[in-house]
Amino acid sequence: MAFDSFTAFILMDGHGPYVWVCYGVFVVLIAGMMLWSWRRHRAVLQACRRVHETTDESGRGSAQPAPATFTRVKVSQD
């Protein structure tokens, strides 16, 4: 341990705010990126599932082909 106490660790001889802001922004952005990517992945996966479940049922149940509108998936890019 390079510090004598926890307070010293937080303060870092006055450089604490700079160091902690950097680490904070780093963690927030990286975690945010991971979370955003994961949620988008889930959304696309669910959209795919919806498409295939609908076509699956309509294919089995009735002779009608699935309406083409179901095959379009709009996923927000941001």
């Binding site: 990517s37 988008r40 992945h41 959209a47 795919c48 599932r49 498409v51 998936v73």
Partner: peptide
């Protein structure tokens, strides 16, 4: 992860994606 997302979005109508999601 992001490539998988992109692949799913592009190939959603293919059979392997269907099998995968179901």
């Amino acid at each position: 992860l992001r490539m998988q997302t992109e692949i799913l979005a592009r190939e959603q109508r293919t059979r392997w994606v269907k099998e995968h999601v179901l």
